[in-house]
Simulated scan of single mutants.
Amino acid sequence: MRDLVSCFSENSINVTHPLSLPSSCSNYNTSNACIPPSLIPSIQTSITSIYRITLPSKHLIIKVTWCNKINPSHGLSISVSSADQNPSTSLKLNTSSRFFRKKKGNKSVDSDLGKIEALWDLSSAKYDSNTCPEPIQSFYVIVLVDARLALVLGDSSEETLKKKSLAFDGFDSGKSLISRQEYFSGNTFYSTKAKFVESGDSHEIVIRCSAEKTEGLKQSSSTHNHRSPVLSVCIDEKTVTKVKRLQWNFRGNQTIFVDGLLVDLMWDVHDWFFCNPEGCGKAVFMFRTRNGLDSSRLWLEEKKMVQKDEQDKLDFSLLIYACKT
């Protein structure tokens, strides 16, 4: 009997070795499936990363949210909670609040999970662009639980860890990035990067909604020049999905392979066409990895993910919330 992965591979798009891919969308015979360089991408307003942390006798969920200046909640937000059926937040930090509006500091709290301490330094942080909410270097964010390292982000934490008599070498808290949520505002061109496996390559993801001439066997003179919305999704400049007549196919899914993994690509652009005022709604795009045996469950259910046995491999999901303005 053939395994599930081989069955899927016959009708799926395979994306591997991004550096060796041709600079064209070779899967479809179309000249405008990828984004022309002149089109300006939408603005990324916030990014939320959700981590599953395994410590001795503790399972935690840590959410880290970055917001740019366009977002009213601009700054850094951190929440730590227990990964049980009814998680209750034990620590919340928002650097844009009245008391924590500073680029370097720390905060601690005693809770039923133990003593939780967050330390951060964004004073010298560097960003990809002026509107990018998440720094890429010269910063750190550290979360300690009962003086144990739970989460370390950034590249400038060494000195702070030494002061705390902690060593990053050999640090292994059982950290797993289980979800990344990105929010965009602007037109219908969205560009981001993501790793579908922590040890894998970073892939460039481009999503675009454009208008193309309607194709069909018969066309009347009134519809000959009609143009309908088309959704194109590219990974590393390779088209993985092209959805024509999007106003009729506003929800759907496609299975692709990335880095040898099954990835479910799903879209829901209903509100782009059927909200009030028309065209100003929010669309959702989702990329979710799954193992070959998990063929029935497509959409992310966060509670189920955090309740899985710690020995099971946690799936990763990238959600893009696209607000068309």
Rank of each mutant, 00 (worst) to 15 (best):
L4Y: 08
C7D: 05
F8I: 03
N11F: 11
N11A: 00
S12Q: 13
I13V: 15
N14Q: 07
V15P: 03
V15W: 01
H17T: 06
S20L: 07
S24L: 08
N27P: 02
N29M: 05
S31V: 05
C34S: 02
S42V: 01
I43N: 01
I47V: 13
S49A: 09
I53Y: 00
T54P: 10
H59F: 02
I61T: 02
I62N: 06
T65L: 11
P72M: 08
S77C: 13
S79E: 01
D84Q: 02
N94W: 09
K104D: 11
K107H: 12
K107N: 12
D121F: 00
L122V: 03
S129H: 00
N130M: 02
I142L: 14
V143T: 01
R148Q: 11
D155W: 04
S156C: 13
S157Y: 14
K162F: 01
L177A: 12
S179A: 08
R180D: 08
Y183I: 02
S185E: 11
G186L: 11
F189S: 05
G200I: 06
S202K: 12
R208V: 05
K213C: 07
E215N: 09
E215F: 09
L217T: 07
S220Y: 07
S221E: 06
V233N: 01
K238D: 05
R245G: 05
L246D: 08
L246A: 08
Q247T: 15
V258R: 13
V263H: 00
D268R: 03
H270L: 07
P277D: 08
V284Q: 15
G292D: 12
D294M: 06
K303C: 10
K308Q: 04
D309A: 09
D309H: 14
D315A: 09
C323V: 15
